[in-house]
Design a binder for these strands. Sequence first.
DNA 1: AAGTGGTCTAGACCACGCG
DNA 2: GCGTGGTCTAGACCACTTT
Lengths: 236, 236
Amino acid sequence: MKKIKKYHQIQEYIKKRIQTQKYPPDSYLPSENEFCVQFGTTRTTVRKALDELLKEGFIAKEQGKGSKVLERGKYLGLLSVKGFSGSTDYKVKTRVTVEPKVVEWDPIIGFPLSEDEKSSKCVYFQRVRYIDDKPVVLENNWYALNALEPIRSEEFVEGSFFKTLSQEYLIEIMGAEQELRSVPASGDIAKKLGIAVGAPILHISIRFRTSRPHLNLYGDLYCNTTEYPIRNSYFL
Amino acid sequence: MKKIKKYHQIQEYIKKRIQTQKYPPDSYLPSENEFCVQFGTTRTTVRKALDELLKEGFIAKEQGKGSKVLERGKYLGLLSVKGFSGSTDYKVKTRVTVEPKVVEWDPIIGFPLSEDEKSSKCVYFQRVRYIDDKPVVLENNWYALNALEPIRSEEFVEGSFFKTLSQEYLIEIMGAEQELRSVPASGDIAKKLGIAVGAPILHISIRFRTSRPHLNLYGDLYCNTTEYPIRNSYFL
DNA sequence: AAGTGGTCTAGACCACGCG
DNA sequence: GCGTGGTCTAGACCACTTT
């Protein structure tokens, strides 16, 4: 028998409505007092729920105005290519170069797999990111088939895999671990990124942790950083 | 006339005692009820103060036991060389190769300087990080002379510049922005890191924001990632 | 002036860790 | 069993934004 925490119920209720766009980005949530009436509780408890959503990056609070729904992911402190998701100075495009398909795990993945994952096949897909019509990042992705079905790229919400996870599956990215290396471009990579063989490129291995138990997303990225460096900021 | 928030006073009081090691790392803080008596307030307020310190990474809470003082910096999600600050699998050493000295700003710094900073000279020093007696990272650092006096490297607390800032000056790192590039090693860098000229190395430009107004720390790092990749994790 | 979120009080009971 | 932190109630007053 598990104790249900009231603030957690409220938190999950609001989170679900944000994920399914019932509270769309940039709109304001109902006021704290309205939630108090709705859930038959006090402001302390409602505020605790909102504080959690604040920490998770779903909302921002504005004194005297209300709690505003954020587009999540923007404020995650993820590594991002300079200019990506920034102002429209750059034309950014993503092309799926290998459709999601079921394959065996690739030993190139830079993290040890769990027993759960090893016992399953995996879904693989590949994308290339363009800035100003030049290929800048080659990105391989994998996840365990027994944790999430294959999703066809035409079904990606606004072309984004992460947005699809959030809005269609209510799965959120909880964190990630990365390893960064500076390496010479192999012939294959060089061709796909349109650079010289042996040119220095940034290799990134990522493991994303998600809110769904046992579901990790693995990434293997190759970035041409000569014109567009990788950016990262983090604040307390 | 500014309103003084009680929880903020308590927060700063405890923070100062942690920074000056009156509450040393790994020890437990006085209980919430003891703080209530000490400051003549209620648990709600004391808990708010502790929650802030939790978010800033100064303490960890353990239900049923107490609030434990953490060694700050360890849990900041900063980029770190694999093995650095981890278990003692690796022998890690830092050598100051250029003593802190007052110089003009170097145009190599990857961020625009504020007017305040430009109007001042700056303090520069250089360090090399070794793992297993092999040089792995070459690190240049700058900060504005009008924001902080030069600190001689013999005075570094436990050889660490950041620990010195925290314990001697009560200055904390609040966040950072980075730009990462994969570049070929120049002759100078190659020699200092003991690698071939033109070998791919990871170049990182950093701006650290601190709790002291107008004080930023700038970094320009060159990392040989062939044996020891750079690691980074972040969690919500 | 009305409504919002921010701070604070003075309690209560619960869940966890340890002796 | 006792002390710790975790959750929750039912209020109050303040600071900020908008009408």
